[in-house]
Amino acid sequence: MTKVSMTVNGKAVSAEAEGRTLLSAYLREGLGLTGTHVGCDTSQCGACVVHVDGKAVKSCTVFAMDVAGASVTTIEGMANPDGSLGVIQQAFQDHHGLQCGFCTPGMVMSSAALLAANPHPTEAEVRHGLEGNICRCTGYHNIVKAVLAASGQTVAAE
């Protein structure tokens, strides 16, 4: 075990890790940030997406030691400073973009990265941008609506 340090949600943190410790495990078990979920073991489902230095990554497919010193943002860091829901989070609630909530942290993080890179995406761009996040509850309809709404666009679909 070695102490691995990084910045998570703006705070300097450190926790014990082995070589094989995944970033997802470092966050969940090392730091108690259990909002980041693990839904598969093949880097497909996207429930574990966090941002590392501003880029969306699947935290189950990154070793904690490989991102030592990096700045990591998780779902716990997405609310406004006053604790209210951020724009994307609020859009997910307003448009019923979540049901069981398990894929939701990854969806929000991927959506945030998508909108940062493309503030006014088309429906097709949203769908393509979320292809690495599997949701089993919503059929994606309201997730896509939520992301479009969060971009400030009127959503055509009812």
Partner: peptide, 9 residues
């Protein structure tokens, strides 16, 4: 390739 998160790594 893959998806956006995969492409970042």
């Amino acid at each position: 390739i893959g998806d956006p998160a995969v492409r970042n790594r």
